[in-house]
């Protein structure tokens, strides 16, 4: 499912965050939203998910304006993992994941879709534990399971790597690759850790101060100049021995 934004402007509390954004995220691909803090990545994801109504412009899923979709239909097509989601501490992980079946009218913790989502997110071992008793990384996986249980065509991830250790990040990348391969899932992911995200991204969109800075396939769009413009720091770009594009920011290097 191709996602098209046409001249989208979005405001929060009276302040315009996104300015006249026009971009097309390719279908069945993993797209990366890159940008610094406060650049508008989360607002863009929420606008695509229909959680924030744009002031101007429109968002289309496969040629259909999202405003014309009923709420539950929208929830069946698009799932989102937010940056700091909240759930009551006493809610069990399986119960949280089962909420993802609400748009389909289901909701049993024993539903096969829920069990599969828990397995995919790597949190099935804690299905009966309370959310309040999980570590930060486990909480992230529990909320990811909730999003996966929606079994939508489009998955939006807002900094999915945060709070995950190296092993869990690797598992997440493998999961995204597998979901993309098996279900032809379209993923749009906002991430700060570009080195992590570029491991799977087919398309990169840089966003700065609510405007598109650059867009394209990683090999052409991700350049030291573009990244410097986007993030304001010098970045080393190189290919590792397996030919993967690697990104290394030059943090506080002593001269």
């Amino acid at each position: 499912m191709k996602i098209t934004l046409a001249a989208v402007s979005t405001s929060l509390s009276g302040r315009e965050i996104l300015h006249d954004i026009s971009v097309e995220f390719p279908a069945n691909r993993i797209s990366l939203l890159a940008g610094g803090n406060g650049s508008g990545k989360s607002t863009l994801l929420k606008t695509i998910a229909g959680l924030i109504a744009p002031d101007a412009g429109e968002v289309n899923f496969g040629g259909m304006n999202i405003n014309s979709l009923p709420r539950k239909e929208m929830a069946r097509r698009c799932a989102i993992l937010l940056q700091e989601p909240y759930a009551p501490a006493e809610m069990k992980v399986a119960q949280l994941a089962a909420l993802g079946r609400y748009p389909y009218g289901g909701g049993s913790c024993n539903a096969p879709e829920v069990k599969r989502a828990l397995e995919d997110a790597g949190i099935s071992y804690a299905a009966n534990r309370e959310v309040g008793k999980l570590s930060g990384g486990e909480r992230r996986k529990a909320f990811l399971a909730r999003a996966l249980a929606q079994e939508s065509e489009l998955l939006l991830l807002d900094e999915p790597e945060s709070a995950l250790d190296a092993a869990a990040r690797s598992e997440l990348l493998n999961l995204l690759c597998r979901l993309h391969r098996e279900r032809k899932l379209t993923v749009i992911m906002a991430a700060h850790d570009l080195d992590f995200a570029l491991g799977v991204a087919d398309f990169v969109c840089g966003i700065k101060s609510g405007r598109i800075c650059f867009c394209g396939e990683p090999e052409t769009a991700v350049t030291t100049e573009n990244l410097h413009t986007l993030l304001g720091v010098d970045i080393d770009l190189f290919h590792d021995r397996r030919g993967r594009l690697r990104v290394l920011p030059e943090y506080g290097r002593k001269s």
């Binding site: 959680l51 709420r71 929830a75 799932a79 989102i80 700091e84 009551p88 909420l99 609400y102 929606q150």
Partner: peptide, 20 residues
């Protein structure tokens, strides 16, 4: 009861599950 479970999440997560 199910709607209450969803309302017990943050507003954005609740809205993303298809409720007003």
């Amino acid at each position: 009861k199910r709607r209450l479970d969803i309302l017990s999440l943050d507003d954005s997560s609740a809205a993303s599950l298809g409720i007003n």
